[in-house]
Amino acid sequence: MTVLVIAEHDNASLKAATLNTVTAALACGGDVHVLVAGEGAAAAAQAAAQIAGVAKVLHADGAALKDGLAEALAAQVLAVAGNYSHILFPATASGKNVAPRVAAKLDVAQISDITKVVAADTFERPIYAGNAIATVQSGDAVKVLTVRGTGFDAAATGGAATVESVAAVAASGKSSFVGREISKNDRPELTAAKIIVSGGRALGSSEKFNEVITPLADKLGAAIGASRAAVDAGYAPNDLQVGQTGKIVAPQLYVACGISGAIQHLAGMKDSKVIVAINKDPEAPIFSVADYGLEADLFTAVPELVKAL
């Protein structure tokens, strides 16, 4: 039994979610191999070889793989998939894009967003926005899984796996990459941050959002998140959204400012270690999951908090 992990990387370095996925792969049992598919991604392949527990790194280098297009990446995974019992992807935008494509080509079910490996064929995953946890068993020969990063610790480094070059696939010709617009951000990455300060609709405008939330995040060295209401209203960019349809986070400390706590938002943050809610509505559902609730106007409480830290 051998397990294949599809590394997520930007051709220069590995994304942190890869490390959590390796931990899940080790829990499945057997040898763990990592596939690094990209263009000029030798550095990422080297980094993958240093993850503790990884037995071998497959490195595919080709122009078709540069931008992680689903058609090419899925074809590359299928080209090497022959002898693997499990194929694991991080449950990120990229992993979710490609994993079902691979599973369908192999004619097997895919299991999304696993949070626990119960046995080599049995996994736990949340359904209904995290309001229920299903334990599912796969009867398929190959298990194709996406791994929720917050469900597994990051694997340590210090390994010394061999890197083996594999032939890269050609482009499908049916899709092409046009461009990318990445939000500039020198803060910790949302899904990997230890502390997250999140703002909701109560902030009222994007100016207020920046004015109130940013100093607190700076002071705590935190990433900034937002509720869907705040994102829809244009107070914060889409990729900061925390919730069922945005990012799933589980930091040490989650500070929710002016967020009511709808089911869909809670689905994205209720596994945080400590939750602080600042809201002036005593009935807000967020208080039912908050370890520490402060019933106050955030426009006075948050600046006060910044001063007190």
Binding site: L69, A93, S176, V178, G179, R180, D239, K247
Partner: peptide
């Protein structure tokens, strides 16, 4: 996508 937007044809 994580981190922003990308366009494909």
């Amino acid at each position: 996508v994580d981190g922003g937007l990308e366009t494909v044809a």
